[in-house]
Every structure is written in C-alpha cells, then in structure tokens.
C-alpha cells in the first residue's frame, strides 16, 4: 500500500456489534439518572411552596432551585426584591442559567449524545442514524456558546454560599414572643454549604474555565500565576464527570431536604 494512492473506501466488515460485555449498562444508568433528575426538578419547579424553611420552623433555608429568589413570591426567603410582577414559580426565572450551563457542558453533551441520541450508544456499537454532522451545524452549533453559559453561572455558587451563610440564622421565639435571630449551625446549614461548594468545584472544573485560566497559552512558563491556576483547574477537570454527577445529586437532595424541613416533615437538628 503506497502512500501515494488514496483509498478512503468503505469498511468491508458488516456493521455488527461484537461486544460481549455489558456495554448497555452505562448508557442505561446515565439515561435513568438524567431522566430522574429532569422529572424531579420539573416537579419541584412547578411545586412552588415549601421551598423556603423560614421562621415557622426556626430556620432560614432557601432551596437552591429557587436561589437567588428575586421576586416577592418567596416571602421572607427572597434574596433581592427586584421583580414583583412575576406570576409563575420563582424557579422558572433562575433555572434556565444552570440548565444552559449543564446542557452545553462537554460532559453532559457526551452523556446525552450517548444515552439519548445513541450517537454512539457505546464504543464500537453501531449508531442507528443514516447521517451524521455532529456539532458542525445549527442547532448543535450553539454548543460553542458554552463559555457564555459559564460567565453567566459563575455568580451562582457564590450566591449559594451566601445563602448558606444566611442559613446560619437560627430563629427562636423569645419568652416575650418575639422572634430572636442568633448564629448557629443546623444540619441544613451544612447541607447548603456542601451543596454550594460542590457547585463551585464543578463550575471551576469546567473545560472552558480550564481554557480561560491558561489552556489558551502555548508558553505556560511565561505566566506563572496562570500556570498555577491552570494546574489546579486541570486537576479538578480530570474529575469533571464525577463532579457533574455529585453536584447534580447534591442540588436535588438539598431541595428535598429543605422541603422536608419547610413542610415540617422532619425537624432540622441543630449542632449549636
């Protein structure tokens, strides 16, 4: 075979899946996990009550789905009162940003291309599509805007940290019957903190973030600070998939917990 002849011909072997391992397990689990999350978050979004655990239960916890709450619909849980004409669930105002971020995330793209689009379902397993153009045309071309989604969501983990800080408000009723706010730590506070931190780590581990921190440079040694940053972010980036899942589950569970506390179903233990 000489280099001088081109033969980009067709594969001879018929398309056939010869894998004998459980190749379908991973896409199946991914699909199940993502579906479960979508169902739960949709339910939560359209169930706009009990997402704020306030004075009635002696706490100041706001569910991350509804944070930051900029309408007056969250009652005492409102973060900033900027909008008062919004007729729907407060979550609808905020969720699009994280959704856009995760939707264009390089990892989630892989996950749904594989498990929902079957493109491909698993490595060396035939793809059931006649034609394939990948991310070269509209609509998938918009995946290139992931970087903007990153810019937009960077404030979120910070706000969530701040919300968690607010979660250190322990509200009690004094002998005189008035509400007294003191600093303290409940299990919910911890959960809010952990959730915010996980979200922050996930955001920092983003491929676009890695690129912007230093990946775009060819001579990293010329920018020692950026090299330092890039090294750290690269380390997180290696665990991007894990962080994507853990932070996703954490957001969901935090919402569950806040709802349980808010509805009075469980009592939030206080450490001090």
């Amino acid at each position: 075979m000489a280099v001088t002849t081109v033969q980009a011909g067709r594969g001879t072997r018929p398309a056939q899946n010869l894998r004998v391992d459980r190749w379908w397990l991973q896409p199946a689990l991914t699909a199940a996990g993502l579906t479960a999350f979508v169902i739960y978050s949709t339910w939560s979004t359209f169930t706009p009550h009990d997402y704020f655990a306030g004075a009635t239960v002696g706490r100041d916890y706001l569910s991350p789905f509804f944070s930051p709450c900029i309408t007056n619909r969250c009652g005492a849980g409102t973060t900033w009162h900027l909008v008062n004409w919004w007729p729907f669930s407060a979550a609808i105002l905020m969720l699009p940003f994280p959704l856009m971020f995760r939707g264009t995330c390089y990892y989630y793209r892989k996950a749904y291309y594989r498990s929902f689009w079957f493109s491909p379902p698993a490595c060396a397993v035939p793809e059931p599509h006649g034609k394939y153009t990948g991310e070269s045309r509209f609509p998938l071309l918009v995946q290139n805007l992931h970087r903007y989604a990153l810019y937009l969501v960077i404030p979120f983990p910070i706000i969530l940290l701040w919300e968690a800080w607010k979660g250190t408000h322990m509200i009690t009723v004094s002998a005189a019957g008035s509400l007294v706010t003191s600093r303290g730590l409940g299990l919910g506070t911890l959960i809010l903190f952990v959730n915010a931190l996980l979200l922050l780590t996930y955001t920092l581990s983003c491929h676009s973030c890695r690129h912007l921190c230093g990946g775009h440079l060819n001579a990293l040694s010329k920018g020692p600070t950026r090299y330092w940053l890039w090294k750290r972010v690269s380390f997180l980036n290696e665990h991007h998939m894990g962080l994507a899942w853990v932070s996703l589950v954490a957001v969901g569970l935090t919402d569950v917990y806040v709802r349980l506390v808010a509805s009075g179903a469980i009592h939030d233990p206080r450490f001090f």
């Binding site: 390089y106 793209r109 892989k110 291309y113 594989r114 493109s119 491909p120 490595c123 060396a124 394939y132 153009t133 990948g134 991310e135 070269s136 998938l140 071309l141």
Partner: peptide, 8 residues
C-alpha cells in the same frame, strides 16, 4: 466540529 466529544 464533527466530533461530539463522546470519548471513545
């Protein structure tokens, strides 16, 4: 742009 980063 054809690559859809599915990592095989």
């Amino acid at each position: 742009p054809y690559c859809n980063i599915t990592k095989c």
